[in-house]
Design a protein around this nucleic acid. Structure first.
Lengths: 136, 136
DNA sequence: ATGAATGCAAAAACTTTGCATGACG
DNA sequence: CGTCATGCAAAGTTTTTGCATTCAT
């Protein structure tokens, strides 16, 4: 029994071909950040006959199940990222659109401090840096 | 000559009724964060006959001119905020939905450092803390 | 006068939904 | 087998665009 099957069952999801394939694509992809359209195209290229609507439905289910995180970067569409348990923030290259992940403990700590100072507990946060390659 | 006219001229924008009205709505609003739809409704309520397409066009122009900042908070629609010259980040109270603004120089500085370390210039950034009132 | 801005409707882009068919457990 | 998932197409949302008309300078 493949890895995906276990993950799906653990998430309480019936093991179906679209779900296994989509999970597999998310695990294999190197960019780590795929739009629904990206996943759909990957399926078509792999010769799988899966509808775009199913891709959206499955990704949303994965999000609910905590397998995947949905990001709303700039421009219209959402991108999905497999949740590997490690927290990180994102840097988006405005020229290429590519996404770089990073972590910074100091920033994490400061965020907690700021929430505290206002009498709140920090539940979640979202930090995206929009950057451009340095001109020299 | 009203305040709005000056701001529009300074931004290099022709002074038209829709632009003046929209700017005025953004200046008057207390929530500080309006969607295009919100602005459109406010115009209709004020008896102004302005099309939704124009609202989008004007808000986009305002953004380009630096009068307004566009935020892509959660999913779906964008919200626009009048740029009052002060940079700040946002804290969203998850229970009430209210938005608190804050600034932190250390975080600002760290963001620049992180971009630098990756060979980038920091163009813009987006930081939202999702918080909940402390239980005591 | 002349070029830009507007309103309307139509189109685009992204995402969700209804329904009949097919697959999982 | 009963139920849930799927595919397709149709509808929903949010935002953009084409074009004739109106408006600002």
């Amino acid at each position: 029994m493949s890895e995906q099957n276990v993950e799906l069952r653990k998430a309480g999801l019936k093991v179906t071909l679209p779900r296994v394939k989509i999970l597999s694509i998310l695990e294999t992809d190197e960019t780590l950040h795929l739009s629904a359209e990206d996943v759909y195209r990957a399926l078509i290229e792999a010769g799988e006959d899966v509808g775009l609507a199913t891709v959206y439905r499955v990704l949303t289910q994965f999000e609910t199940a905590g397998l995947v995180t949905r990001h709303n970067f700039d421009g219209g569409h959402s991108v999905f990222e497999l949740d590997r348990g490690d927290h990180h923030d994102h840097m988006v290259d405005m020229e290429t659109g590519s996404v770089i992940e990073f972590t910074n403990d100091q920033i994490e700590r400061l965020q907690h401090e700021i929430a505290e100072q206002h009498g709140f507990d920090l539940i979640d946060h979202n930090l995206v840096l929009y950057v451009r390659k340095k001109k020299m």
